[in-house]
């Protein structure tokens, strides 16, 4: 019991996550280069890149490529997604459900609302199911029982109902609008 209280290791390796210059340094394990839509270069270990189903199938289709362009993905969410996948690889090698759960919980807790919302399309595009599950649940937890206005601003959604339409909806299901959690 006591041995499992250490927080997940997020220490030295995170430095590798920052965008690196386009120069290759020799490393023992095979690296794969990912290029974000804002032209940032990420070098990740092959095992990490293969967690991204989209990248994996890209390599299966064109094995000779050295750089995978990710036109729909910007650098910041991509770096966070890579961070997550690196940890998941460790849990794959060394299964520890309790630690994994703890890591996943901490991973989302420390993220801002915007970070979470920005990561979701990335996880979806790269087809990282575990991460998508974690993110979807985290977002659901954050909007649960919140006011309509809060949910709109959370996702940056414009209200396209007329005032009358919205009032009618609220009247119709008034019981569901009684009492919301504080923002």
């Amino acid at each position: 019991m006591s041995s499992s209280t250490d927080s997940p290791t997020l220490t030295t390796e995170t430095t590798q996550l920052s965008p690196q210059p386009d120069t290759e340094t020799a490393k023992p394990t095979k690296k794969i280069t990912l290029k974000s839509s804002d032209n940032q270069i990420f070098e990740v270990e092959e095992s990490v890149a293969m967690e991204f189903a989209t990248v994996k199938s890209f390599f299966e289709d064109s094995p000779s490529t050295d750089t995978v362009p990710l036109p729909n993905v910007t650098a910041k969410p991509l770096s966070q997604v890579i961070e997550f996948c690196k940890e998941q690889i460790k849990f794959k090698a060394n299964p520890d459900e309790a630690q994994k759960k703890k890591y996943n919980a901490e991973f989302v807790t420390e993220k801002s609302d915007k970070d979470l919302v920005d990561m979701i399309p990335v996880a979806n595009y790269l087809e990282i199911k575990d991460l998508l599950d974690v993110l979807n649940q985290a977002v659901a937890d954050r909007i649960e029982n919140k006011s309509v206005e809060y949910v709109r601003s959370f996702f940056g959604i414009d209200n396209d109902f007329t005032a009358e339409e919205e009032a009618a909806l609220r009247r119709e299901h008034a019981w569901a609008y009684e009492g919301v959690d504080e923002d």
Partner: peptide, 13 residues
């Protein structure tokens, strides 16, 4: 989401 929240979400957009 729980049902109550879900119904609130119908008036988001």
């Amino acid at each position: 989401l729980p049902i109550e929240s879900l119904i609130k979400c119908t008036s988001v957009c």
